Amino acid sequence: MKATFQVPSITCNHCVDKIEKFVGEIEGVSFIDVSVEKKSVVVEFDAPATQDLIKEALLDAGQEVV
Results as ranks from 00 to 15, higher is better:
K38G: 12
F5L: 04
E44M: 13
K39H: 09
Q51F: 15
A3Y: 11
F45M: 00
V66A: 10
E20R: 15
C15F: 07
S35N: 11
F45C: 03
F5H: 02
Q6C: 14
A57F: 03
F31H: 12
A47L: 12
V29K: 00
I32E: 00
V36I: 11
D33N: 11
V41K: 00
E56Y: 10
E27A: 12
V42W: 08
E64F: 13
L59R: 11
V29S: 01
K21C: 05
K21M: 08
L58F: 04
V65M: 07
H14V: 15
E20F: 15
D60W: 11
F5G: 00
A3P: 04
I54G: 02
L58K: 00
Q63C: 15
Q51V: 15
I10A: 04
P48D: 02
F22M: 07
A61Y: 05
E44T: 14
E20Y: 15
I10G: 04
S9K: 05
L59C: 06
F45E: 01
D52H: 11
E64Q: 13
E56G: 11
Q63L: 15
I19Y: 02
V65D: 05
K18F: 06
V66T: 10
A3D: 05
T4P: 04
V42M: 11
V34W: 04
G62Q: 06
Q51D: 06
A61H: 04
A61V: 05
K21G: 05
T4G: 04
N13S: 12
A47G: 06
G28P: 00
N13Q: 15
C12S: 14
C15Q: 10
V42Q: 08
G62W: 10
K2Y: 09
V42S: 09
F31T: 11
E44V: 14
V66P: 05
S30R: 14
E25R: 15
S30P: 01
V23T: 03
S40I: 14
E25A: 15
Q6V: 12
P8Y: 08
G28D: 00
T11P: 09
D52I: 08
S35Y: 04
P8W: 07
D17E: 14
I32C: 04
T11S: 11
K2A: 07
V41I: 07
D33A: 10
K39Q: 10
Q63V: 13
L59A: 08
E56L: 13
F22H: 10
S30A: 10
M1G: 09
K38R: 13
F22N: 05
D52W: 13
A57K: 06
V16G: 04
E27V: 12
V36F: 08
P48V: 02
V16Y: 05
V23K: 03
K39D: 05
A49Y: 02
G24V: 05
S9T: 12
N13I: 15
K39C: 13
I54R: 00
C12V: 07
T4R: 09
D17G: 08
H14E: 15
E37F: 10
E37P: 10
I19C: 00
T50P: 01
G62M: 14
K39Y: 06
Q51Y: 15
K39W: 06
L58A: 01
A57L: 03
K21V: 06
